[in-house]
Amino acid sequence: MRTEISIKNTKSKFLDKVEELSGENIYACYQCGKCSAGCPSISEMDISPNEIIRLVQLGEEKEVLNSKAIWICASCFTCVTRCPKGVDLAKIMESLRQITLRKNVDYVNPLSISKEVLSQVPQIALVSSLRKFSS
């Protein structure tokens, strides 16, 4: 199948939203792959971090928002530290999560977390996980 690309992709609301929320220029990424090379979460991701940006550049909204990768990203800032173009990929990942969360769709329902887990993990883990995974 051919992917049709047109001005609808390159000037989409989705792309604008990502840039607005992240404050990053999506086109600044030149696809060197250094982010993916160092990402500690890469093996659990279905789409690698640089490819996430590439898909945003191509306006592939559905594929990006449906990916597991954006939720696996743990905001460790390794990529941010090393990106030669100064792209803050952690912010881009966050904006992609936020686009979903702001539709009131949780990635993790807080009520589904068991009592056992709640009593086991430190507060900072709980609070941050809810901040990242629920609306």
Binding site: P40, A74, I113, S128, S129
Partner: peptide, 20 residues
Amino acid sequence: ETECCASYHTVVNVDLVVER
């Protein structure tokens, strides 16, 4: 020494943390 431990994933994705 500077690699991420998977952080808050420990709440819902223990496996990931274990690997890391």
